[in-house]
Design a binder for these strands. Sequence first.
DNA 1: ATTGCAATTGAAAATCGTTTTCAATTGTCG
DNA 2: CGACAATTGAAAACGATTTTCAATTGCAAT
Lengths: 164, 164
Amino acid sequence: MREFLRTKGYKMTPQREMIFRAFFELGEHVTVEELYEKVRKIDPSVGHSTVWRNLKLICEVGLAEEVKMGDGVTRYDRVTRQPHGHFFCTECKSVVEFNVEPIVDIMTTEAAGRNFAPEHFKVEVHGVCAECREKVGRQTARGTSPGIEDDDHATVEERGNTSR
Amino acid sequence: MREFLRTKGYKMTPQREMIFRAFFELGEHVTVEELYEKVRKIDPSVGHSTVWRNLKLICEVGLAEEVKMGDGVTRYDRVTRQPHGHFFCTECKSVVEFNVEPIVDIMTTEAAGRNFAPEHFKVEVHGVCAECREKVGRQTARGTSPGIEDDDHATVEERGNTSR
DNA sequence: ATTGCAATTGAAAATCGTTTTCAATTGTCG
DNA sequence: CGACAATTGAAAACGATTTTCAATTGCAAT
């Protein structure tokens, strides 16, 4: 690893090693917060920005990539695995993966037709997972337009707004 | 429209009407900034937060939805149109759409198998568009051997480059 | 019309995730 | 060993978005 980084013009430091290791020990879809937590359990002196910078670095050297599910939190995914899509549960925030090979094929063809050079594919399905469907009894399944009943995303600890 | 909103418990106001109208006059992938600009050309007294709030409202009543392309800027898309994917050029920030029906079919099947209730699909291809490839001569493509097919309707929308 | 009240507004301040600044420290290479 | 660029930590800066708050304004019931 030290070598790998050196060839790219980066130095190895204790903090960096710790952060890299922690990142790869955490599973998939790691958030900075999670990584930060894990790292400072080992060494509380490691700074906020150092974790950030190194997470970025991991991406820069091609070992991970950002995954944003429009909820404001960026997650980071190792790139070692096959390309994959994500099921995002809007209720419990869980993330499940699925195979996207056939989809990537389609997109590749589509891109070629436009002389567009694809570098990265992103395929997401937002909805409600099996467990949450049971709990909440929500039924927005079919291809119908989502019910726009006001006051959704309940049960989740959102901002405690009650004013107005 | 006034009626439509009233039934949902919202009032119509001059600002609101102006903002709604402006939003629908602007094309696709509208940013708050663009909308704000357009609105305050008509009435400079309209506040920042009012535009924001109403854009959110447009989404809430189901007339538009957020489209985040991982570059920090949220765009808003009318929901009247067919579901579509986005080609996102990392160089010039242009956005081009493509049909995703076959892809949605696959995702729907995939979701059904997991008893996942899909509400929204997001399909993106990030890469370099035809024009930028010529300019920069970049070739970072993967699996794509870009046969120079007919480049048809490429509705390329230039975007002001916002640094970050 | 007049009234009551919740919805709405504008301005400013507050959040939140992320990035940058800066001085001090530490790898790496000659 | 030194020099020097890369790295670090803390704090401040940032940009997008949200909230606060007092003042205003639709709208429904009088």
